[in-house]
Amino acid sequence: MAPTVAVIDYGIGNLRSAEKALQRVGADASLTSSPDEIATADAVVLPGVGNFGRCMQALHEADLADAALAAAASSRPFLGICVGMQMLFEASEESPDQPGLGVLPGQVRLLPDTVKRPQMQWNPVKSLTAHPVVDSIDGEWMYFVHSYAVLDTAAAIATCDYGGPVVAVAGRDNVLATQFHPEKSGRPGLGLLRAFVEHIPAVTGSQA
């Protein structure tokens, strides 16, 4: 049986792509704004695009911040994408008044003014440390769209270079977060999602 993946739907931008890409790699993925579904899914994905403060606000207004925090604190695989990654950190320079979820240590900073903002391009990622899901994309090109990023964190797993090192993947324990959009990064992006889905522990009783 395919693992269930709850893609948290809090009314922000293009969430459909993440759902479609997860389905493509074999997950039983669906957009949901139900805390119960988020609490019971085998894995949880927090997407996000646009403004950090607006995303945090929308997550709170949809009453889903607690559900996201609980999922990240569980042992179930959890993936944050783009602003969904940024929201897992403590705060962002983009919206200083709106704290992040604080699941991962560090701050989200404005990209340096020596480069065009947003970074809107493909960029190869470089692994800093071995990780079962991330290993397969070391050196692969991924699609980035962002003006803010985590530049330094103890939770860094992979970086890309854009006016200096930018954290491309971060995580700890069950939590993984990508600054790029795996659902928009063609074959290697789908490869990362496939690895994420394949590492979802088999649900009790689902195996013959």
Partner: peptide, 8 residues
């Protein structure tokens, strides 16, 4: 942009 971000 205010609704969805200037990246889109």
């Amino acid at each position: 942009a205010a609704e969805f971000g200037d990246q889109c």
